[in-house]
Amino acid sequence: MGGNELPLQRIEPVSVSGRGLPRWLRRTSGPVALVLLWHILSVTGVLPSEVLAGPSTVLSSAATLIETGELQEAMWVSLSRALTGLAIGGSIGVTLAVIAGLFRLGEDLVDATMQMMRTVPNVALIPLLIIWFGIGEAPKIALIALGTAFPLYLNVYAGIRNVDQSLIEVGRTLGLSRLAMIVNVVLPGALPSALVGLRYSLGIAWLALVFGEQINATAGIGYLMANAREFFQTDVIVVCLVVYALLGLGVDFTVRTLEKVFLSWRPAFNGT
């Protein structure tokens, strides 16, 4: 070999080459700037404590609630309600979506009813839920289940019906049975839409939880908020709102992780 060889260099795609600040730093800059602005407005008196407590007061209240164990207990109760309602509503939504998506008869029997019911505001059903289930845990979980069933139904149904027809033809050419076609082609093809529906359902679960915990709650984040409202404790209210946000962020992160695990076979655009 000649002596004019160029040294070998590793070539990286532009999409993965590092540019500028790390991504985690860019993602946290917005929330940090917002908290900093909130602190400045509080210490300068532009934002009175009667209107909204400052970050230092909120942190102090959070530490007190953690020390007494009230916050952990409330988080566990609220998380249990949300996940139980999601499990019930999600199971119903996915089951009906599979029936309507796979079979024309199922679509005729299920889809029109689901499309009609999803337009009814869930909050408007609270009086009926109280009459049917009382004022215990059942109406709270039922409200969450109703809210989470429809996003999963719509997305799973759309995912099944939008499976590439060429994949179906390939399956038929390979001689796959109807069951094998559903298990190996249709359901994996509908999985991306199902995970999107799950993310929507989780977001709605937290919204429904806020309303549900106003129904004679004796525990949970909503109960803490209701008590704080009675005594104009804006610091405790902010603590509860932050907890709601962090719980929602946590479960959303879980779903995003599931997407990376189960959809690793699918190339996707990650932004520029």
Rank of each mutant, 00 (worst) to 15 (best):
L71H: 00
V43R: 00
G212S: 10
F211K: 09
Y200C: 09
L247K: 02
P139I: 04
L176E: 08
P13L: 14
F231K: 09
L167A: 06
G203S: 09
A205T: 11
F262M: 12
A53Q: 02
L59G: 06
L207G: 10
L25W: 15
A145D: 03
A100E: 01
V14S: 14
F262R: 08
L125E: 05
S78V: 06
S42T: 08
G93R: 08
T68I: 15
L246G: 05
L187N: 06
E230N: 09
M181F: 00
A205F: 00
R199N: 07
L258F: 04
R27A: 14
G159E: 00
T173Q: 15
V185R: 06
M1E: 06
L37C: 12
G222F: 02
L96A: 11
S201T: 07
T257Y: 12
V123Y: 04
L86I: 04
M225K: 04
T173N: 14
N155Y: 08
L207I: 14
G197D: 01
G203C: 05
S60R: 10
L174T: 10
L47V: 08
I130C: 05
P48C: 01
G197L: 03
L146N: 01
I131F: 11
S177P: 00
G220D: 11
R172E: 01
T173G: 15
T272H: 14
M75T: 09
L202H: 00
W76C: 11
S193R: 05
A190G: 06
G189D: 03
A158T: 13
T113K: 10
R118W: 00
P151V: 04
R23P: 06
E50V: 13
V123T: 07
L36M: 15
S201R: 02
N162G: 06
R10Y: 14
V196I: 09
S29A: 15
M181A: 12
A217Q: 05
R266G: 06
A100D: 01
V185I: 14
L154V: 12
F231Y: 15
A74L: 03
L246Y: 12
V51G: 11
Y223K: 12
E107F: 08
A226S: 11
N216S: 13
T218W: 11
F231L: 13
D108N: 15
S80N: 08
T28H: 07
T64K: 13
E107L: 03
A63Y: 01
L37W: 09
T257F: 14
W265E: 06
L224W: 04
L179E: 09
I131Y: 12
T234R: 05
L174Q: 10
Y223E: 05
P127E: 00
F232C: 13
E50Q: 12
L198H: 08
V51N: 08
I204Q: 07
W24P: 06
A145N: 01
P48H: 00
I11Y: 13
I131N: 12
D111P: 04
Q115V: 02
A228Q: 03
L154R: 01
V210L: 04
R27Q: 09
